[in-house]
Each structure stands twice: as C-alpha cells, then as structure tokens.
Design a protein around this nucleic acid. Structure first.
Lengths: 212, 212
DNA sequence: ACCTGAACACCGTTCAAGT
DNA sequence: ACCTGAACACCGTTCAAGT
C-alpha cells in the first residue's frame, strides 16, 4: 500500500507529531494516493478512521492538505463508493435472458457490498453511489429491462426498487442484529434470503409471469 | 411546544449566552422534556439541530445537563425512534386476513416514516428501532405470520425483509433523488410503488399463491 | 439527584501565507 | 499548484464541584 512517489521519509511518517515540511514543500500527494489512504484507513480503523484529520495524519500531511486533491469529505466518500462499484462486472445487456442478467448484476452488487462491510453504512447514508460507475450499472439495468418490454417510469421504478433492496439487505447483513432472535440467521441464510426476495421482486416487476 | 414545568424564565431563554444558574440550581428538566426538545429541534433545524450541545442550548441548560436524563446521544435517538412508532396502530393480530393485516401494518409504518422525514436517516443508520414499541410491532407481525403457517426462521426472515423494504423505500422517498431521472417519480407514484412491491414480497413470502 | 464550569480529545473547513 | 500554520466554529463526553 501507499505506493507512488514521496517515499523518502520512510516508515514512522504517519505516527509523528511535529512538522516535517515548511510551507511550500510538496508531499507528493495525489488524488489516487488520498483515495488509497482512505481505503487503508477504512480497512484498519473502520468508519472512524475516515475523518479528514485522521486520514491526513495517516498520510503524513496537514489536515487541510487533502483539500488540494478532494473538494470536501463528501467528495472523498463519493469517490470511494463509486470506485468500489468497479468490482461489479456487468454482463452484456444485449445477450442472454434479460431477467437472469438483472439477477446477475444485483447478486454481484450485493456480493461486492458484503465484501466491503465498512462502506455499507456510507452507501446507506448516501442511498447509493452517484458516480460514473453507478450510472453505467444503472444504464445496463435499464437496457435489460427494455428488452423485457419495461421502459420509462416503470423501468426507473424497477431499478430503484432493486437498488433499495440490495443496499437495505447489505445493511442488515453487515450490521449488528436488531433483535436477539435475528442472530440465528447465518450469513448463508441471509444470502439465500436475498436471492429469494430478489426473485420475488423480479416476478412482480416482470408482471406476474415468473419466466423461469 | 415546550410545555411542562420550568417556564418562569419565559421567552429568550434559548437565545442567550450567559449562565443563568449557579451549580446546584435545578432547571426543572425531565426526560420527557428532553425528548420533546429533541423533537422540536429536529422539526426546526433538521438533523443538525439534534446535537447534544445545540439541544442543550435550546433547552437553556449546560450541554452536560442532558446526561442526567439520557445515557448518551444514542439513547436519545433510540428513544425518539421508538416513541414515533407509537403512531403506528397495529390491527388485532388474531382477527381478519393475516396477509391483509401485515400489509396494513407495513403501510401504516411507511406512512409514519414519511410523516417524519428527518427521522428516516436515523432509522436507516440504526437499521430500525429497538425499543418496546418496535418489539411489539414485530411480535404482532410474527403472530400474523404464524396464522399463515409461517413460523421460526422463515417468519424472522419475512419480518426482516419487510422492515428493510419499508425503511429503504422511506429513505428513497424522503431523500434527494440519486439521479436526475428519478425526480420524475412523484410522491404518489412512489407510494404506489411501495404498495405494489410490498405485495410482491408478500406473494413470495406466502409461498407463491397470492391469496387475493 | 440535578445542574454548572471546565476540560479533553476530537471534528470539517477556510484563509493567508510560503515556494 | 501544492502545502503549512493558525484559526473558526463546532462536536460528545467526563470529572469535580455545588446545593
């Protein structure tokens, strides 16, 4: 981790307290390095590690140095969320059964969310991602729905329903159980439940004729 | 608003800066007054008004005075969320069609969530309420499911699915649209969509035979 | 038991420098 | 353009008093 330029100060950089650079000296930071640091902070310290000040400390810069590479904290979080969606491989919207295509895209999205449990509360708080990757996935789903004869408002409603469902389920799967009884549900049971409820919704979206 | 004891200082109480009481003097605060103040703060200033310090300022007390009536901020928020569920009138779990009963309970819950849009992000963040009211509603749903022959893990899965669905939809209905295209969905269209997707899920939960 | 004063250890963000 | 120093306006929470 922390690859890239600006490595000459070596280890111990993140732990110290004093100033190593005078104003005007560069730290060799880039937007990508900031995002990589944010990921590492999230992995190591969880959501609390993702404050601007703690991230700056980890990167060995002054807190306000981050604002040269990121508009504000929301910008940082949005970039993190959208980047993560790069891990979701969407099937070709023009080939195969459209309903199976949507199921694939949603299951992969769900799997990626579960693979990044600390990000899930952020997806929840922002109700999804807004970046180019999220848009691309949304367009793929709309293309698949169109092949099933679903367009316009019903198509928008369908994608919204499915995204809500995936994020909501991920939140429950990664969070602490609400009631003691819920702890009896294993991760596998939850995954099955997601798959099942997903197909229920798709049954309804497809208009009552299940198709498989 | 702000009914109850401790009114003798009158208007202007919340705006001033100086200390009106020396240590040892009481402000006449109660847990209920703190919760009422929290509701008013939420209604007036939104989620940002719900900091301990701002709430204390509104109530005319020192920030730490709140800790005599509330364990911490989470305790305050939890009480707020559970109290609001008092507005959800649950039908008698023993009477009428069980599926219709669940639909009623979920639609009323959804309506109450929409009636308190500022609380929705908090329900989302905490993935529901945990207090006695939430437990009572959950038990009512389990009783209805039992009458439909659904018990044990499947019943817990069903309630979880339905609650995720309601909170997720409320979050999307009350929040800003994620993509420009979504803004075309009117509140009424969203409400219809919730009702429809709810019945899709219930179709699935009921085992594929829609029952109505 | 209920409240204040003061403090601790934080936040995000901005503004004015420096090179 | 990229960074630091310093500051502003906040947070939640705790501890030691006072009555």
């Amino acid at each position: 981790m922390a690859s890239g330029p600006g490595e000459r100060r070596g280890a111990g950089e993140a732990g110290g307290a004093g100033a190593r650079r005078t104003p005007g000296q560069r730290a060799g930071l880039t937007r990508e390095a900031v995002l990589a640091g944010a990921r590492a902070a999230l992995a190591q310290d969880g959501i609390e590690g993702l404050s601007m000040r703690r991230l700056a400390r980890r990167l060995g810069v002054a807190p306000n140095a981050l604002y040269s590479h990121v508009a504000d904290r929301d910008d940082l979080v949005d970039a993190l969320l959208d980047d993560t969606l790069n891990e979701v491989r969407a099937p070709d919207p023009r080939r195969g059964d459209w309903r199976a295509g949507i199921e694939t895209i949603m299951r992969r999205t769900y799997a990626v969310l579960l693979a990044h449990p600390d990000l899930v509360p952020l997806y929840v708080a922002r109700r999804g991602a807004r970046g180019p990757r999220a848009v691309a996935l949304g367009e793929a789903m709309l293309a698949m729905l169109a092949r099933g004869g679903i367009e316009g408002d019903p198509a928008v409603e369908a994608t919204r329903t499915l995204i809500v469902h995936a994020i909501g389920f991920a939140a429950f799967a990664t969070g602490a159980p609400l009631q003691p009884a819920e702890s009896t549900l294993t991760p596998k049971a939850l995954q099955d439940l997601f798959a099942r409820s997903l197909s229920w919704l798709l049954d309804g979206i497809a208009g009552g004729h299940p198709m498989r």
